[in-house]
Nucleic acid binder design. Sequence first.
DNA 1: CATGAATGAGGCTTCATTCAT
DNA 2: CATGAATGAAGCCTCATTCAT
Lengths: 211, 211, 211, 211
Amino acid sequence: MENKRKMLIESLKILILKKGYSNTTIDDITKEANISKGSFYTYFKNKDELLEEILSNKMESIKKENEKILKEDFTLDAVIENFLISKIKERGFDIKTEVVVMNILQNLDVLSPTTKKFLLERDQINIKFFQDIFIKYSKFIKIELKDVINHAKIIDCIINHFKINKFYVTIDVNEGFSFENNIDAIKEKMNSSETDSSIEFLKKIILKILT
Amino acid sequence: MENKRKMLIESLKILILKKGYSNTTIDDITKEANISKGSFYTYFKNKDELLEEILSNKMESIKKENEKILKEDFTLDAVIENFLISKIKERGFDIKTEVVVMNILQNLDVLSPTTKKFLLERDQINIKFFQDIFIKYSKFIKIELKDVINHAKIIDCIINHFKINKFYVTIDVNEGFSFENNIDAIKEKMNSSETDSSIEFLKKIILKILT
Amino acid sequence: MENKRKMLIESLKILILKKGYSNTTIDDITKEANISKGSFYTYFKNKDELLEEILSNKMESIKKENEKILKEDFTLDAVIENFLISKIKERGFDIKTEVVVMNILQNLDVLSPTTKKFLLERDQINIKFFQDIFIKYSKFIKIELKDVINHAKIIDCIINHFKINKFYVTIDVNEGFSFENNIDAIKEKMNSSETDSSIEFLKKIILKILT
Amino acid sequence: MENKRKMLIESLKILILKKGYSNTTIDDITKEANISKGSFYTYFKNKDELLEEILSNKMESIKKENEKILKEDFTLDAVIENFLISKIKERGFDIKTEVVVMNILQNLDVLSPTTKKFLLERDQINIKFFQDIFIKYSKFIKIELKDVINHAKIIDCIINHFKINKFYVTIDVNEGFSFENNIDAIKEKMNSSETDSSIEFLKKIILKILT
DNA sequence: CATGAATGAGGCTTCATTCAT
DNA sequence: CATGAATGAAGCCTCATTCAT
C-alpha cells in the first residue's frame, strides 16, 4: 500500500529528528513504522533513496512557495519579511521535513551523491529567488549583479543558522548540545514572540546587506 | 613515545581531509601513522578522544590569535580585515586543523558530547571577541549590546560558509560536491587574489552589519 | 489457466539462458511471465518443481527421437551422423530446453534430488540407445558388451562438451567466459558450416572409438 | 597466523567436498575452522578470493606435473598412461584440491570472473600439454595440428567425466546422486584395481583417438 | 484463482575493541 | 609498550514463501 511508503517516510523524518540521519538504521525505521525489516525494500532500494524522496518533494514546495512570494505586490521590506516567515516559521510547510533538511545540511559526509545534488539544487533555487528579487527591486538594492549569488548564499546561511540555533538545537549540560526531538516544542518556539523579534532582527540585517 | 601520539593526531587530520571524520576508521588512522592498530588504544581511548585533543589545542590558538588582534591599535576596518585574514587565510594556523573544524561543523550527528562542547566553546570565544570589539569600538558600532551575541554568531557563520565554499568544497558532476582533499590545492586557493577580493567583499558586508 | 503454467515454464527457460538456473529467482520468473509472484505457487510448489517439469517433458522427446533414429535403416556411419545432428543441431527439439539441460549439467550442486534423478534417467536413455546400436550393428562395432555403458557415457560427454563450447559459451575478457544468452545467435551458430565440420569431426572420433 | 589462513583453505575444501561450493557459507567455513566469522576477513576478502587462492596453487602444480611427464623418455603409450595416472590417481597431488576443481567445473554459474579465468587457464595448460605431446610424438600421432586443441579438450573432458563418475559421485536412492564426501572412500576407490582397469580402458580410447 | 505486500530467515561485510604474545 | 590477530555485535540486503484482499 502507498500508505506504508508514507509511513516509512514519516518514520525516517521522526528518527532524523530524534537521532539524526546517520544514526538511523533501516531497522529503526521499520520498527518505528511497525513494519518488518524486509518490507522496507518493497518501497525503497535503501536508506538514501528514502531520503532522496523526501528531498525531492521538498524541492517542489520550496519552489512554489518562493514563486508565491514573488508574485505578490510587496515592498522590498515586505518581500524579505515574507521570505523569512516562509523559511523560518515553515508557513505552509511540513516542519518535520524542514528538520530533515537542517539535519543533512549538518551531516554532509554521509550523504549520497544524489542527496548532495539536492542540496545544490536547493542552493540554486535560493539563488534564483534572490536574482528575481534583484531584478524586481533593482532600484532599491545596492549590490552588483555579479554579487547576487554570494549574497544569496550568505543570506541562506544566516537563515539556516538562525533556525538551527533557535528551534532545532538545545544546549545540554551532558551532550554539549543536541537536536530538539520534540516536534511540539519546535512548533511552540516557532510561534513564540521571540521568533517574531528574531525575524525582525534578521530582516534588518538582510536589508542592511542588500541596500 | 609522545611522538606516536602526535603521528596519530596528524594522521586523523590528513584522513579527515581525505574522507571526513565519520568515514575514517581506527584502522585508517593507524595505517596512515604507520603504527599498529592495537597501539592506538595506548594513546587514546577511542577516535573521539583523539579528535577532542585536536580541538583542545585548536581552542588555545584561536584565543591567542584573537587576543593578538585585539591588542593591536587598529581602526575598526583594520580589525575586521585582520580578523578575516586570520580566520580565512589561517595566518599562523595549521590549515589541516582548520579543515578538521570545518569538517566536524558539517557532521554534527556523529560527534561526542565533549566534541560538541568544544564547538560551543569555539562559539563562546568568537562571541567574546566581538564583545571585546564592541566595547573597544563602541562609538563606531551601531548595534545594541544585547545583539552582540547574535551578530557574532552570524558573522562566524558567514565566514565559515565562505571558507567552506571557496576552499574546501568542489562541485563535482558525479558526487554533487566533495571536499577538496589536496592540502596544496587549498593553500593555493587561499593565496590567490580571488581570496583577497573575497575578504574585501566580506569585510564590506560585516561592516554594513555592524555599523 | 494451463496457459500460465506454460508461460512460467517458458520464462524459466529464457531466464536460464540469460543468467543460469541458480541466479534466477521466483520474482524473475513471474516478472518475465507477466504473472504475479504469488501465482507462481498456484502452479508449482517451487522453482525446482518447475524445472522438473521441463526436464520431464524433455526426457520424452529424447526417447522418441532416439527411437526414430534406430528405426531407420541406416549404416552405422549414418546412424552416428544422425544421432549427432539430432543432439547437436537440436533437429526437432526446442533449443531453449536444451540450454536448460546444458545449464543444469554444469550446476549440479543446486539441483533437487528429483532433478538429479532426471539427469540419471537421461544417462540411462543414452546408454540404452548405444546398447541398441551395439546390438543392431554388433558386427561393425569392436567393443565389448560390458564396455557399452562407459562408451555411451564418454560419447555423451564429448557431445555435451562440444555443444557447450561451440554454441553456449563465449570467451569474455572480463568474465573469463559466459553463456551465450541470445537464442538467435545460438541458432545461427548451429546452422553454420563450421557446425557441419564439427559434426564430421566428432563422427570420426566416435567411429574411431567404436570400431 | 599463516596457520589460520591454511585452516580456512582446508575448511573450504572439506566443505566443498561435503556440500559444494555454492552451498557453503562464510559461516560454515569459519565454524569448520573454529574461527570467528569476522576473522575470515583478516585472511580473505570474500569466499571467491579464498577459492581463487586454492586454484592458483593448483595451477602451478598441474604445470609442474605435466612438465615432469614430458621430460621423461617415455613411449607415447607410457606418456598417456602416466598422464592418466597423474590426472586420475592424483599422484603427488592433494585429492581435496582436485575435488574442488571437479566441483567448480560442475557449478559454473556461481563462479567469479577470476575463478572462471582459472578454468580457462586450466584448459590452456592442458592444451599446451597435448601440443607438446603432438610435437614430441608427431610420427605416432595421426591427427592434424589444427585439431590438437579440440582433441586436448575432448580428452580432458573424458578424463574429468571418468573421475567424477568413478570417485566423486555416488548414486543415491534419495538424492539421485551426490558427491562422495568421505575423502578416505575416494582414496580407496583410487587405489582399487578397478581404477587400474579404468585407466587401461581410457588409455585405449585415447590412443584410438590420437593414432 | 490472482495479486503483490509482508515477512523473516539467512547471508555478507565492517569495524571498534580486546588480548595473548 | 607494541603488535595485529581475533572477536562479535551491528548493519545491510535478498528472496522464498505466506496470506489477506
